[in-house]
Amino acid sequence: MRDLAAMAGARKQLPEFAKDEVAALLATISTLANDPARLASLRRRTLVEQDIELIDGSDCPLCDSPWERD
């Protein structure tokens, strides 16, 4: 019964648990939604970071074409 009472008390605190983090996240989402250029930049950066992790051979991980050599 004590465990159930403790869980019930903890449940009441959940809405306040990450209130500041949720507010910060919502502000960031709003910023991105209101600035298409910033959102596009973030998407490009994410794509490049993922592609860099995939570089392991002589072909581009994005387009599967051979790297140009001078």
Rank of each mutant, 00 (worst) to 15 (best):
D70P: 14
L62F: 03
R45I: 01
P66Y: 05
E21I: 06
A33T: 09
A23H: 11
E21W: 06
E68T: 02
T28M: 06
P36I: 10
D59V: 07
E21K: 13
P66T: 01
D51L: 14
R2Y: 01
L62P: 00
L39N: 07
I29T: 08
L4R: 08
A18E: 11
Q50V: 03
A5M: 03
A40Y: 11
G9R: 13
A27D: 11
L54Q: 13
S65V: 00
R44T: 04
W67I: 01
L14M: 13
L39G: 01
Q50Y: 11
L54G: 00
T28I: 03
E53H: 06
N34S: 15
E53S: 08
V48E: 12
A37W: 11
D70Q: 05
P15N: 07
R45N: 12
D3E: 02
T28L: 04
A10Q: 10
D3K: 03
D3P: 00
L62E: 03
T46Y: 12
D35V: 06
D51N: 13
L47K: 15
L54S: 11
A37C: 09
A40L: 13
V22W: 09
I29C: 08
R43W: 01
T46N: 15
L26W: 14
L14Q: 13
E49G: 06
T46Q: 15
A6C: 01
D35Q: 12
A40P: 08
N34E: 11
E16F: 12
S65N: 10
K12E: 13
L14K: 14
M1L: 05
A33P: 12
A18Y: 14
R11D: 07
D59I: 04
Q13H: 06
I55S: 06
S58I: 01
A23K: 15
P66Q: 08
P36G: 10
A6H: 02
A5E: 07
P36A: 14
Q13K: 12
T31M: 15
L25D: 02
C60F: 06
Q50M: 08
P15K: 11
L4V: 00
G57W: 13
P66C: 02
P61C: 02
D3S: 00
D64F: 02
A33M: 15
I29Q: 15
D70F: 09
L42K: 09
R69N: 04
E68Q: 07
A8K: 12
T46C: 10
R11S: 09
A23D: 13
K19F: 03
P66A: 09
A6R: 09
K12Q: 15
A10V: 00
G9P: 02
L14N: 04
D20I: 04
R43I: 05
T28D: 04
